[in-house]
Write a protein that binds this DNA or RNA. Structure first.
Lengths: 136, 136
DNA sequence: TTCCTTGCAAAACTTTTGCATTAAA
DNA sequence: TTTAATGCAAAAGTTTTGCAAGGAA
């Protein structure tokens, strides 16, 4: 069984992304579990584990990954972008008091009616965010 | 019949917001129709019509209006906030090629299944964005 | 060698804040 | 007259970019 790093390396190569040291480390952090991380969190995590990576490389790499469908960029609050390691279709809970994002699997949401897209357009995706507040 | 400005003034007062000249002008621009505008667009519109308003006042006023439920702030793309003059519940189409936002009335979407909110929380709101791309 | 990637710093953008001035009640 | 709102500039936070240096093929 190969370690997680080398599996990340393989995934990058499979996408046509050259698996440099920095890219593999960024992929390893984000893809190690289904999670939502900001660019700064990823940078801090890498720096904390002694990696030499620049902020610019983190941002550029995340954009690169997202453009290749390896991760998904979320616009949940206006403050910053969140990067989701889960690229399968799914939705989100957004806890307004903690800021936490929680995945909602597709089967837990069913639309019995959706509007027809305007003429000349088609649906590229559906983003659903269920905002949560503390009860009472 | 009163003009639109004085109706805006009345709406501000009804919310407990002191209707100063700048606030009434900002409200007049945004509330004149159901629309989605950015802070910069509102500032440009006001400056273009000869109004004396500062950028800080536009931002602060939009936050004030949103906190009183007079307008709604949207997080559709990461780039900037959009302010929606329609505060009735509704959803959005987001045209990815033009950036345009189009309202989707509530009756055009029906959920036949939604996940239960996690223990201790309740649903504060549902944001649905249907992304559109050009057909073919 | 040649091309691509990285790091750093600076720039670009959006939004917020501090504070003196001005306007509203 | 007293309190609140405004304008300006500066600051803050996130993200992008230019460019020289470094690394991979």
């Amino acid at each position: 069984m190969l370690n997680f790093d080398s599996r990340c390396e393989t995934r990058l190569s499979a996408c046509g992304i050259r698996p440099t040291a920095q890219r593999v480390r960024i992929a390893t952090v984000l893809l190690s579990a289904p999670q939502h991380l900001s660019a700064e969190q990823i940078l801090a995590s890498l720096r904390g584990s002694g990696a030499r990576v620049s902020k610019a490389t983190v941002y550029n790499t995340l954009n690169l990954f997202a453009s290749h469908g390896l991760i998904r960029q979320l616009s949940v609050d206006g403050a910053r972008a969140w990067f989701d390691s889960n690229v399968d279709p799914h939705y989100h809970f957004h806890d307004l008091s903690s800021g936490a994002l929680i995945d909602v699997p597709v089967p837990e949401v069913e639309f019995s009616r959706l509007p027809a897209p305007p003429p000349g357009t088609e649906v590229a995706g559906i983003d659903l965010v269920i905002r949560l507040r503390k009860k009472q």
